[in-house]
Design a protein around this nucleic acid. Structure first.
Lengths: 240, 240
DNA sequence: TGCCTCCATCTTCCATACAAGATTGAAGGC
DNA sequence: GCCTTCAATCTTGTATGGAAGATGGAGGCA
């Protein structure tokens, strides 16, 4: 299972700080807190009716997850999205998921085909009734299931942690039409995997993930203020 | 450069907590703090002559890195090494590094060959004078340089963060003879990359990384107490 | 008008005190 | 002798007060 090795999100139990982490994380991904927004320990403490200490610890954890930027003695801001960072997150994801489908294709497990097809069927149903949130969750389940079949569920955990960078971009581009294309691509992946065609599965997965590239350019054009300046130097002399 | 997106190690500047993180991290990797050892905030605070607060924040960060396990209201212990976690860290590393050498082989950059050959030459020198630490650092530089040439240095950052799990294992098996083999394998990688042979580079990289597998089994046999019980269930009902 | 200086006010960082759950071992009853 | 119970003493979690640095605007000066 999720077992062992930094679950990154929650390495600790049910505490005030943990709840604040979850709440802020949600606000950041859904852009209720926008990239560049400044928040302070006192703000958050007052807002949740707690003391500054748990708020501070939440900041630390979110900073490690790359969502906040703590500028010592100055302020803490919601990190702007880095185009290069998004590209490299995608690189990481593609590297790992390609390796995953290869493994699954080579393993010839009996339950593979049925498990994946069931998820796709649910996705089609969710798409019918325009359940955006449900569709999103099923998409996640599809990829996590592949990881499980490959025996590397923790590796997916990692991809998932970094996917949050991609998720903020995706939240800006809620393409409803793209759901049908995603389903088609999922089917192609399953077909190749079930046939034991590793090369075909790899190609299908790469095609599936390639879409994000165009979305990124499009999003930068529409919301340039949410992204970091694309210079070579870190712009400000901040601690990174 | 290192730019953006959770540098995971240090998302914050020069502070007491940061220094404690670095110090403890070092002690954990070098096994001065052994897997299973219990430490407390008060211990560390007293040891470094600071208050509990910075020590506590250091714990939080190290827990997120998967090096500590915080058991609320009970104790904080150095996390035992998980054999499955090590395997999956290796999986992650192989996935990403294979993709990297493919890219570099396909890019045909002029400086590639010289840069890598220079590092290998330094490694041979370090091996001659039995500079173990220097050799280790050059090995790291070799792989990081490949990532830089591929334009995904941040992705290497990620591998590096997870490599710490492998490093604890490696610290237990300081094979001097294996240095020569590592150098030979590095040369094979460079040869394939410089020739633009993506498939050959991939194969060479996989062969290079495969060695860790045998080391793991060997190490578990020698130091079973440093590893987690290999059951299916998390053994204790702890928060993971 | 334009520039420099200083101070009120913000921020994060650290120290300290207290609260509450978990553990351990000893004392008491059987 | 063995089991149960409970209390002293660990642990981490939270609250609060103060310190040091950074910021920005007001006010003085050329």
């Amino acid at each position: 299972m999720g077992e062992v090795l930094q679950p990154v999100e929650e390495a600790v139990s049910d505490t005030i700080a943990s709840r604040v982490v979850a709440a802020l994380r949600e606000e950041i991904v859904t852009l209720k807190l926008k990239p560049g927004d400044a928040i302070s320990e006192s703000d958050i403490a007052a807002r949740y009716g707690i003391s500054r200490q748990p708020a501070r610890e939440a900041f630390i954890r979110l900073a490690q997850q790359g969502l906040l930027l703590i500028r010592p003695k100055r302020a803490t801001v919601v990190k702007k999205i880095s185009a290069d960072g998004v590209r490299q997150s995608r690189f990481i994801r593609e590297s790992i998921e390609v390796e995953i489908v290869r493994r699954v294709a080579g393993a010839h497990l009996p339950e593979t085909k049925e498990a994946l097809k069931a998820i796709i069927a649910d996705q089609e149903a969710a798409s019918e009734i325009e359940d955006v949130h449900g569709f999103h969750e099923l998409d996640e389940l599809f990829h996590r299931t592949l990881a499980r079949l490959a025996g590397v569920e923790y590796a997916w955990q990692l991809v998932d942690d970094h996917k949050i960078q991609l998720d903020r971009v995706r939240y800006l581009t809620l393409g409803v039409a793209s759901q049908k294309r995603a389903i088609t691509e999922h089917k192609a992946i399953v077909a190749a995997v079930a046939a034991g065609d590793a090369a075909g599965a790899e190609a299908a997965m790469r095609a599936h993930l390639a879409r994000a590239e165009v979305l990124l350019g499009q999003t930068i054009a529409e919301h340039p203020d949410y992204f970091e300046a694309e210079e070579d130097e870190p712009a400000e002399g901040e601690t990174v």
